[in-house]
């Protein structure tokens, strides 16, 4: 059932965070990392053009240069072909306003980057398990 690879798009500009993330995902995951909103846009556009597989999960940092995580979220959730891709905000901010903004723009989750590494690995494991393996999603995209 899980024979095909899990594809994750992670939009993050901090090298340290990218590195850390990589530490905690297994090799079954095909991870694409882009470091700004514009690259993320072009990446998704390219997938559409080439009719390639869309990612199973998109993880967005909020503070990104130029196009912010929220703008990207908005873009994804408005696009007919992308809107059902589980999109989780992954930020160091636990500001209520950010959290409210995320959910009111139809984010599928909001995770505050944990300080503790144990918590960090559990967080990634949990939301990946849920959105990629547990949750039933619409097929038509």
């Amino acid at each position: 059932m899980y024979d095909h690879k899990t594809r994750i798009l992670y939009v993050e500009d901090s090298l340290a965070d990218i590195n850390l993330f990589k530490e905690f995902i297994d090799d079954k995951v095909e991870l694409t990392v882009v470091s700004d909103g514009q690259s993320a846009k072009s990446y998704l556009h390219r997938l559409k053009q080439t009719k390639s597989h869309f990612p199973n999960l998109i993880i967005l940092d909020i503070n990104l240069p130029e196009i912010s995580g929220f703008e990207l979220l908005n873009l994804i959730k408005k696009e007919q072909r992308l809107k059902f891709i589980p999109t989780v905000m992954f930020s160091s901010s636990d500001n209520q306003r950010d959290i409210k903004d995320a959910f009111s723009q139809a984010a599928n989750g909001y995770v505050v980057k944990p300080g503790d590494l144990g918590d960090y690995s559990r967080a990634i494991e949990t939301f990946m398990n849920y959105w990629v393996y547990t949750c039933k999603l619409p097929q038509e995209q």
Partner: peptide, 20 residues
Amino acid sequence: SHDLKEPLRTIDNYVQLFEM
């Protein structure tokens, strides 16, 4: 404090990773 939190968390994360 909000902006300091982020780099400090990264330091903390890597301190732990380094220790591991």
